[in-house]
Design a protein around this nucleic acid. Structure first.
Length: 365
DNA sequence: AACCCGTGGGC
DNA sequence: TGCCCAAGGGT
């Protein structure tokens, strides 16, 4: 598709059909109240791999807590992580704050205005750079997300696998010829609205789409054949012991390493069972020994009543066997850990799997 | 290029 | 239940 074979009149008709529909039917979303690049950045970052309905309350709270790019740049990282709690993909939160710090420090608070410059900021890739540049700064660049891939794959019956990185370039070339140079931000957002309504992944309604006359997949009765996308492998099962250790000072929560799964969040200490040997009792004894070596104190681990908690991520399924122990409030200087009383749990960022563990300890409530 | 990184909803 | 999907980016 090096060169789009549509005549200029057809290109104009497509833009008009899309934008007329958008002007009449666009969704009323909190981040569409203005074109502030800070607002666009927050919303686009939250919306990565996350549904609109999930994002809306997070967006409102986040903006109330960190109203300006300077406020976000200056905030304690723990506060940013807490505001992100439950949204997932937590590196997004750290990189969002890093981007804010880059804007303040490297640009003196004056936003770069091109997609090329924006993409150099932390956490901003080709999609988010295109979205900010087109919506906030009117640059005629595509913003290719899952919606755009689906919409244009269907419109042109494109067989390329959208899971492959090299496919993006072909879509960029195509959309670059179609995007409305007068209204690039609205064009990109119209494509997203189209991709989440008439041209959604499941149960689409292409017959009533504003661009049905341009939809080759509909005309050839192959709508659901597009986009072509390879499947992901099933999550791998990973067994752990989760150590619920309670002292008069509260629960023992460990801060996870600053890279990898649930980086920087707070959880019960985990012991990987794959490295342990023997039956359950033997493994519990090994877990206790391992903990004693790290913490410098022996605890008596017991199988909890609610013993198994499962949590599925994109690539892993954790099977957590819950062990409990009562302990004195021993010194934690050697661990990246804290005693957190129940009343102070609201102060640390907990992943959903940790909330499940607390719930299991409370008898499912 | 292939893999890693969360969560909730829908069927 | 298991699987797919949802405004991706980093390495």
């Amino acid at each position: 598709m090096e060169k789009l074979d549509w005549p200029p009149t057809k290109i104009k008709a497509f833009r008009q059909a899309l934008l007329n529909w958008y002007d009449a039917e666009k969704r009323d979303l909190p981040w569409r109240r203005d074109h502030d690049p800070y607002h666009i950045l927050i919303s686009e970052t939250m919306l990565q791999q996350t549904q609109v309905a999930t994002v809306i309350p997070y967006y409102e709270r986040f903006l109330a807590q960190f109203p300006t790019v300077k406020a976000l740049a200056a905030a304690p990282e723990a506060a940013v992580m807490k505001a992100w709690e439950g949204l997932g993909y937590y590196s997004r939160a750290r990189r969002l704050q890093q981007a804010a710090q880059q804007v303040v420090r490297d640009y003196g608070g004056q936003w770069p205005t091109t997609a090329a410059e924006l993409q150099a900021l932390s956490g901003i890739g080709p999609y988010t750079a295109g979205a900010i540049a087109s919506i906030a700064f009117n640059e005629a660049v595509p913003a290719i997300d899952g919606n755009a891939f689906r919409v244009f794959a269907r419109l042109f019956c494109i067989e390329d696998d959208i899971a492959k990185p090299q496919t993006r370039g072909r879509f960029e070339a195509l959309i670059g010829q179609l995007i409305d140079p007068e209204r690039p931000g609205d064009f990109n957002q119209a494509v997203m609205d189209l991709g989440s309504s008439y041209m959604r992944a499941k149960d689409p309604d292409p017959a009533h789409s504003p661009v049905v006359a341009f939809d080759q997949s509909y005309q050839t009765n192959r709508v659901l054949d597009f986009p072509v996308k390879t499947k992901k492998p099933r999550p791998k099962v990973v067994p752990y012991f989760a150590l619920a250790i309670e002292s008069p000072a509260g629960w023992l929560l460990e801060q996870r390493p600053n890279s990898g799964m649930l980086a920087d969040l707070w959880m019960f200490p985990l012991v990987a069972r794959a490295e342990l040997e023997g039956d359950l009792d033997a493994q519990i004894a090994q877990a206790a020994a391992q903990f004693a070596a790290e913490a410098g104190i022996a605890v008596e681990l017991q199988l909890a009543d609610a013993k198994l908690v499962k949590h599925t991520f994109t690539h892993q399924q954790w099977q957590l066997t819950l062990l409990t122990a009562a302990a004195p409030a021993f010194d934690l200087a050697v661990l990246p850990a804290r005693w957190v009383p129940a009343a102070k749990l609201a102060a640390v960022a907990l992943p959903t799997v940790q909330k499940k563990l607390f719930k299991a300890l409370n008898g499912g409530k």
